[in-house]
Write a protein that binds this DNA or RNA. Structure first.
Lengths: 240, 240
DNA sequence: CGCAAGTTTGACGTACATCAAGTAGTGTGG
DNA sequence: CCACACTACTTGATGTACGTCAAACTTGCG
């Protein structure tokens, strides 16, 4: 129906190293954060080339990951090639939380990515004694659940235009710059995330351009010119 | 687009009582389970009439709930009346886990229901010391996340027939009897859960009946005559 | 029994998918 | 630095699965 399986699984260039990593842990935290320290001590840095898999559906879920740079997609491919992306993971976000014995989804790098991996067993052991780590895990799971539930509403009940506006706004909410967005993913990725086809996504973007709601450069840089209008569309007021 | 807001919010008949409740806690547990005991001591029994709200979207999320009898739906209604159901909660299941300050969804009784409510504050306090409770909460969140992610794949990439087969099988997986299902929810609820209309759901069921895959009595009792065929359809092989 | 709510079935419309060219970006080797 | 090729994106024409509208039928409660 959509997405051919044109993504050859490239062997990951796993530059493992058990070295300190000078980046915020958990949420935004300053240095000397006890949680950060605890996590840092068990983290392993990994690098992945574009389209390389971090883990595959069915793999035993032994790690949780955090993105340092690049971007990750979490997806499932049906037998006939239809693909659904469950989540995009951007720098600072965690992924691989869908542990129930084994991963239910595949995680792949959208662009060359650097990732820190935390062994689940150690994480759980630390959580038993360190309340802050326990709270962090719970909060990550809650946020993930909440985001996924919103995804469900969007997929179940929104039109193509609404989905697209929703997507742009959700990326906006996760970027530093609130008007100039960098979209690391392809149109196909966006389509598979929104439950649409690549053509419908493209047409939707073109229409936003024509309506001067956005400006696109190089097809991966988007400037939001009228956030209010996009919000109206996303929430179903944009009766056109 | 779908679902009118024909569901008048009925004041809940809250028969609160801080009394022991002779039912399995956590998973299936025998009596004298420490987790069960801990939960039981902080649980309050509540009763809700059909269509009564347990909590509304935007309410402060101060409790987690467990269904004893009846069934609950977790849903969101868009401004123009479109409704998406995120989850059906059956006896033994927990709901209200979507706590992030406030509930993102409304929870309503599908049929008259009895529910136990656990104050979030106390639950968190217990979890800090009792590892078993902590694990239970984590496991509930993980299961919820996993189920919601599957919902996303279904909504994003499956056809009406596939959704329906998937739905019947998912209910099967949660019932004791693997062939004779009791569906407490209406066709409208099913439609709003699957991202379809009531008519499409009805037509799909009729087609399954014609193909002798299921037998329906009274429109709320369904017998699965050919689980293998339904599984094939749900997974996308049912090219018809 | 009788009415209202819920469900099924039919006829028709439409938003999005599919199929099919084109056009821009992106990278590579001369 | 440009020419080539390759991939990604856009645009158009057409098809279809599902939505909408409308009317019968069934169910279950008062």
């Amino acid at each position: 129906m959509t997405a051919m399986l044109q993504i050859a699984p490239i062997a990951a260039e796993k530059l493992s190293a058990r070295m300190p990593w000078p980046v915020l842990e958990g949420g935004r935290s300053e240095t000397a954060d006890p949680v950060a320290a605890a996590l840092q001590s068990i983290g392993t840095v990994l690098k992945f080339k574009r389209n390389a898999a971090v883990f595959n559906e069915g793999d035993p879920a032994r790690h949780v990951y955090k993105v340092i740079s690049g971007a990750i997609r979490t997806c499932r491919v049906l037998m006939d090639g239809r693909r659904q992306i469950a989540d995009f993971t951007l720098p600072g976000d965690f992924f691989g939380l869908d542990w129930q014995g084994e991963h239910g989804f595949t995680a792949e790098a959208i662009a060359d990515a650097v990732v820190v991996s935390y062994p689940r067993s150690q994480l759980e052991r630390i959580a038993e004694t360190q309340v802050a780590v326990q709270k962090l895990l719970m909060s990550l799971l809650c946020k993930g659940l909440s985001a996924t539930q919103n995804h469900v509403v969007m997929l179940g009940r929104q039109t193509a235009q609404e989905r697209l506006a929703w997507f742009l706004l959700s990326i906006m909410g996760r970027s530093d710059d609130d008007t100039n967005l960098e979209l690391p993913m392809s149109r196909l990725d966006i389509a598979d995330y929104l439950g649409l086809t690549i053509e419908t996504v493209s047409r939707g973007i073109s229409q936003f351009k024509r309506r001067r709601l956005i400006t696109v450069s190089g097809s991966h840089k988007v400037a939001l010119n009228n956030v209010a209008a996009l919000e109206a569309i996303a929430s179903g007021e944009g009766a056109l």
